Lab assay of single mutants.
Amino acid sequence: HNLTITQGKLFFHYNPKLCLSEIHKMEEVSGTKGRQERNDIALKTNGDQASCENELLKFSYIRTSFDKILLRWEPYWPPDFRDLLGFMLFYKEAPYQNVTEFDGQDACGSNSWTVVDIDPPLRSNDPKSQNHPGWLMRGLKPWTQYAIFVKTLVTFSDERRTYGAKSDIIYVQTDATNPSVPLDPISVSNSSSQIILKWKPPSDPNGNITHYLVFWERQAEDSELFELDYCLKGLKLPSRTWSPPFESEDSQKHNQSEYEDSAGECCSCPKTDSQILKELEESSFRKTFEDYLHNVVFVPRKTSSGTGAEDPRPSRKRRSLGDVGNVTVAVPTVAAFPNTSSTSVPTSPEEHRPFEKVVNKESLVISGLRHFTGYRIELQACNQDTPEERCSVAAYVSARTMPEAKADDIVGPVTHEIFENNVVHLMWQEPKEPNGLIVLYEVSYRRYGDEELHLCVSRKHFALERGCRLRGLSPGNYSVRIRATSLAGNGSWTEPTYFYVTDYLDVPSNIA
């Protein structure tokens, strides 16, 4: 807008934040220059609390790290170098490059900038070799853009010569660093050979998330399962459950009422301010606690030095998902009996873990797994792929695949051998790939016309006998059925096997 004052003059007093240069501009645009008398524009009460600059400061050096910015700028000295009290560095987070010096300023003089007072450097006698002032900004957020400017702080001049310097606002972004852990990993099994893994992005990506790394490792069953005799009275049979499938998407929606109208769909109840505040506090606490764990609990591995020492970490090797089922080394339970199943799973520490690289999504279907087997899954978020990966501390989750139908069934015939004193040795093959492992066998036998009897055969007993022995049988026709019990439950009964026990007292003698 054009402003013209045809008559009258300007009068400025007691404006401590208004620089004289701005008042002189007002004289020019209003056409009143030359009308004012000496005392109409006070030299001592206008701009006496402001830094009124008329020179431009330029930054000469900028260096960044993930949490620091090192700045240096060209030296500046007023005509009387004693008038320079120091520099004021202003900075704040700036997602967009549209910041002005006066953003967030209120009537009390406060604003949204963080201000650092910096002492002037030592003055050199040689004007050509003056030290460049600077400042190291610490405690910054990774991968965050900051708006920065600097200006001088000078003393009051009796001659009211307006001098000083100020830089333009520059924008500097800190470097990326390792992201925080992925949030809320959930693993479920939808079949006997697959596990579905879902997660949420890290709360602090500290860069642009480029991919996720998912490692999985087959877990050995508890050692007590191999040692305890679950045929003993009072000892509860062990059981394991597989990871249940995901709930429906509708039930997972946030901010939804727990109660549904019987007449149909209901609208979600909005969260109160107290609920939102509580969630923010919980989120802040979780982030602080995660940072504490990362800094205190997890110790970084030592990389190899120039002395030739090897990095103890196993090298990563990509495998196809079809090879995942046989990740671990199978060892027989008892070496003397080769027909026992290889369900003991000690994992070799030198073995390469299978892994998958996930790009542009937060889910993965891990296939080719062994049925009813526990897996430990390790999830890392990465925001750099080359020249070397920059990934987060791992988040861990466990899951067990679903049982395989008929995996616990005894394959092959049940054979028998009759000894003296009416002892019958029953023999059968253990299931080759049971659900988890076989903890015991149930032997059901009966003599024709009598009630059915049951015998429990422990895992250890089966390994020693290759089956079991029935003792003290009365003469007669017998039928026997056997079924295995694994961590997933009972298998199917075998087809009945028949044998006849004679009275050993009636056996004919070869003595003449």
Results as ranks from 00 to 15, higher is better:
residue 203 S to V: 04
residue 212 Y to R: 03
residue 214 V to T: 09
residue 215 F to E: 09
residue 216 W to M: 12
residue 220 A to S: 11
residue 223 S to V: 12
residue 224 E to P: 14
residue 224 E to G: 15
residue 226 F to H: 13
residue 227 E to M: 11
residue 227 E to T: 10
residue 231 C to A: 05
residue 236 K to A: 09
residue 237 L to M: 08
residue 238 P to F: 06
residue 239 S to Y: 15
residue 243 S to F: 11
residue 245 P to T: 10
residue 245 P to V: 11
residue 251 S to V: 09
residue 259 Y to I: 05
residue 264 G to D: 15
residue 264 G to I: 07
residue 266 C to T: 05
residue 266 C to P: 04
residue 268 S to N: 10
residue 269 C to R: 09
residue 272 T to Q: 04
residue 276 I to S: 04
residue 276 I to V: 05
residue 278 K to M: 09
residue 279 E to Q: 04
residue 282 E to Q: 05
residue 287 K to C: 02
residue 287 K to D: 03
residue 288 T to M: 08
residue 295 N to D: 04
residue 296 V to W: 05
residue 297 V to G: 02
residue 298 F to P: 02
residue 298 F to W: 01
residue 301 R to C: 03
residue 301 R to N: 01
residue 303 T to H: 04
residue 304 S to T: 04
residue 306 G to Q: 13
residue 307 T to Q: 09
residue 307 T to F: 07
residue 312 P to M: 07
residue 315 S to C: 09
residue 317 K to E: 11
residue 317 K to C: 09
residue 318 R to P: 11
residue 321 L to P: 08
residue 327 V to N: 10
residue 337 F to N: 08
residue 338 P to E: 07
residue 338 P to Q: 10
residue 338 P to A: 09
residue 339 N to Q: 14
residue 341 S to L: 09
residue 344 S to D: 10
residue 346 P to L: 11
residue 347 T to V: 04
residue 349 P to V: 03
residue 354 P to V: 10
residue 356 E to Q: 08
residue 356 E to C: 12
residue 356 E to V: 11
residue 359 V to T: 12
residue 359 V to S: 08
residue 360 N to L: 10
residue 362 E to T: 12
residue 362 E to W: 13
residue 363 S to L: 13
residue 363 S to E: 12
residue 365 V to R: 09
residue 366 I to E: 05
residue 367 S to P: 09
residue 369 L to A: 05
residue 369 L to G: 04
residue 371 H to Q: 12
residue 372 F to E: 02
residue 373 T to A: 08
residue 375 Y to M: 15
residue 377 I to R: 00
residue 377 I to D: 00
residue 378 E to R: 06
residue 380 Q to P: 00
residue 382 C to L: 02
residue 383 N to K: 00
residue 384 Q to K: 12
residue 390 R to V: 11
residue 391 C to S: 04
residue 391 C to K: 02
residue 393 V to H: 13
residue 396 Y to E: 06
residue 396 Y to L: 13
residue 397 V to L: 15
residue 400 R to N: 12
residue 402 M to A: 15
residue 403 P to I: 05
residue 404 E to Y: 10
residue 412 G to F: 07
residue 416 H to P: 14
residue 418 I to D: 02
residue 418 I to K: 07
residue 423 V to Q: 03
residue 427 M to H: 15
residue 429 Q to M: 15
residue 430 E to H: 12
residue 430 E to S: 11
residue 431 P to T: 03
residue 432 K to M: 07
residue 432 K to Q: 05
residue 435 N to C: 12
residue 437 L to N: 11
residue 437 L to V: 09
residue 443 V to Y: 01
residue 444 S to C: 14
residue 445 Y to L: 14
residue 445 Y to Q: 04
residue 447 R to S: 12
residue 447 R to P: 13
residue 449 G to S: 12
residue 452 E to T: 07
residue 452 E to G: 10
residue 452 E to M: 05
residue 452 E to A: 13
residue 453 L to Y: 00
residue 455 L to Y: 11
residue 458 S to V: 06
residue 458 S to G: 11
residue 458 S to F: 03
residue 458 S to Q: 05
residue 458 S to D: 02
residue 462 F to P: 03
residue 462 F to W: 12
residue 463 A to K: 11
residue 464 L to V: 07
residue 473 L to A: 03
residue 475 P to A: 10
residue 477 N to Q: 12
residue 477 N to I: 11
residue 477 N to T: 09
residue 477 N to L: 11
residue 477 N to H: 11
residue 480 V to C: 15
residue 481 R to H: 01
residue 482 I to E: 01
residue 482 I to V: 15
residue 486 S to D: 01
residue 490 N to M: 07
residue 492 S to M: 09
residue 495 E to A: 09
residue 496 P to I: 06
residue 496 P to Q: 05
residue 497 T to P: 01
residue 500 Y to P: 05
residue 500 Y to N: 14
residue 502 T to G: 12
residue 502 T to P: 10
residue 504 Y to N: 06
residue 506 D to I: 11
residue 510 N to P: 10
